[in-house]
Design a protein around this nucleic acid. Structure first.
Length: 479
RNA sequence: GCCCCCAUCGUCUAGAGGCCUAGGACACCUCCCUUUCACGGAGGAGACCGGGAUUCGAAUUCCCGUGGGGGUACCA
């Protein structure tokens, strides 16, 4: 059980908005830090200048904050091991690369892309796997001089010692690789910047990362990284690899499956707290079997040995259910405020705050995502209401319906419009008077005339909010 | 191709040799509640990938298949 100096990190690359997979990895790191009193660090891996963009850095910040994952150290808040952007850490890569060069663990490789391609082609013809030959490892001074005058820019390669390498993954258990199957890897590109496998190691080492919790797409990088730690003579961190998050068709979650970025989900009206709760249970399970939990509660119960090692499919059904649970449990004022941004098409000023609360409250049980609120409350706005022909045919045109509406109109004269309880009572009286007609014959026409729909909020609430004028008007329109 | 990971209801999972006639949650079905849709409540259906081996006993251990996923870059 880890107890001291736990330092974990999330290291997203700003080549896109924060992906749900990355968010889930971030969450597990955050939970681990929280549970064991460690530090959670955010590092931006922007070595690939081509694909990195500042707007994505911002999106990563915003998304992480939105789901409550605050970091102890990072590009914006700084920290003891700053800077926290790879693009600003060049000196470290240079320093360690020189060190490896000096100790003989790395060497300059002058091979051109074409030469490498040729080697690959040859390997293919001979039906063997391509492994870099290492031919630049022992170059003569003359040869090197010749390459230099040709204007070739070398890469730095790390020589992979062939051996059976075992490591104990905190989630997967023991994993063994034969490093002889890996050729010497490039650690510094010819433009002088580090490759991913080198940069992570150096950063994690410099930032004193104790546990690396990441997606299992990194398992095969792990032996290369361990070898670099070893060559540097430093302590190797602990590794824990999470199963992937897959789309319902078992393929990698991508745009064609819908939203993949945390911000997209939030924009659609998934509550951040519901979303993060959902993410936590994608791979982790609570010992008490309960599934509605706050990040703090989860952190208390969290442990890596309750993290499953299989891939998890991202199913919307459960997310939707969970979001509904959170929506139903939210204080109404809070909910109403959050719904505000989805209600832009209505003139909200015609209602008081408490009326708005009442409106939202009357439909929240039907609300799955916040962006659905607009449709659910449509009939509370405007003077009139559209009723499609089918509904008219079904519940409004019969003589019986007309009679109900006419009687109702008369009755509605004396409703106590400001008192929902009273309206309920008066409704009861109305139904009493309409006997032998059944409720099912009485209510639908009234609802249809008032809302243009065959389902929705409690009628007493609708009547109260609409007020006498609009109730009268909408009923008369259907007589 | 080669390397690595994974394999329990449709889905997320519980399960660390006998507690399993395999438990929970979502989804699904039925019923109840009800002015509608929902919400809520009560039930139901639904799984250990296949084959060997170990053992008195295997969902649980080990092999071999099969299936899925990942990696195999001067991308991260």
């Amino acid at each position: 059980m880890p107890t001291q100096n736990i330092r974990v990190r999330i290291a997203p690359s700003p080549s896109g908005n924060l992906h749900v997979g990355t968010a889930r990895t971030a969450l597990f790191n955050w939970l681990y830090a929280k549970k064991y009193n460690g530090k959670f660090i955010l590092r931006i891996e922007d070595t690939d200048a081509e694909r990195s963009e500042e707007k994505y850095v911002q999106n990563i910040f915003d998304s992480l904050k939105a789901i409550g994952l605050n970091w102890d150290e990072g590009p914006d808040v700084g920290g003891e091991y700053a800077p926290y952007k790879q693009s600003e850490r060049q000196e470290f890569y240079d320093k360690y690369s020189a060190k490896l060069l000096e100790s003989g663990h790395a060497y300059y490789c002058w091979c051109t892309q074409e030469e490498l391609e040729a080697e690959k082609e040859l390997a293919k013809q001979e039906k063997r796997d391509f492994i870099y030959s290492g031919k630049c490892k022992n170059l003569s001074a003359d040869q090197i001089e010749k390459y230099k005058t040709e204007g070739r820019k070398p890469v730095v390669r790390f020589s992979i010692p062939p051996k059976k390498l075992k490591f104990n993954d905190l989630i997967k258990g023991e994993i063994e690789f034969d490093t002889a199957l890996t050729g010497d890897i490039v650690i510094m590109k010819s433009n002088g910047t580090p490759t991913y496998n080198f940069a992570v190691v150096i950063d994690d080492l410099e930032m004193k990362i104790s546990h690396i919790i990441r997606g299992e797409d990194h398992i095969s990088n792990t032996p290369k990284q361990i070898l670099i730690y070893e060559a540097l003579g430093v302590e190797v961190p602990q590794f824990a690899h999470l199963g992937m998050i897959l789309a319902p068709d078992r393929s990698k979650l991508s745009k064609r499956h819908g939203a993949t970025a945390v911000s997209e989900f939030i924009n659609q009206g998934y509550l951040p707290e519901a979303f993060v709760n959902f993410l936590a249970f994608l791979g982790w399970s609570s010992p008490d079997g309960e599934e509605i939990k706050s990040p703090e509660e989860i952190a208390n119960l969290f442990s890596l040995d309750r993290v499953s090692s299989n891939p998890a499919i991202f199913e919307f059904d459960k997310l939707n259910w969970m979001n509904g649970v959170y929506i139903r449990n939210l204080p109404i004022r809070d909910l109403a405020q959050r719904c505000g941004k989805y209600l832009g098409k209505y003139d909200l000023s015609c209602y008081s705050e408490s009326q708005l609360d009442l409106i939202i409250d009357s439909v929240r049980k039907n609300l799955v995502k916040l962006d659905e609120i607009s449709d659910l409350v449509s009939y509370f706005f405007g003077e009139d209401v559209n009723i499609d022909n089918e509904l008219k045919q079904n519940v409004l045109i019969s003589d019986e319906s007309k009679k109900v509406l006419a009687d109702f109109l008369e009755f509605a004269e004396n409703f106590d419009y400001n008192n929902i309880e009273k309206i309920h009572e008066q409704f009861d009286k109305f139904r009493e008077r309409m006997k032998p007609l059944k409720p099912k014959q009485i209510m639908p026409p009234i609802r249809a005339a008032l809302t243009g729909l065959n389902h929705g909020a409690d009628l007493a609430v609708i009547i109260s909010v609409l007020g006498k004028d609009r109730v009268t008007k909408r009923i008369k329109a259907n007589l």
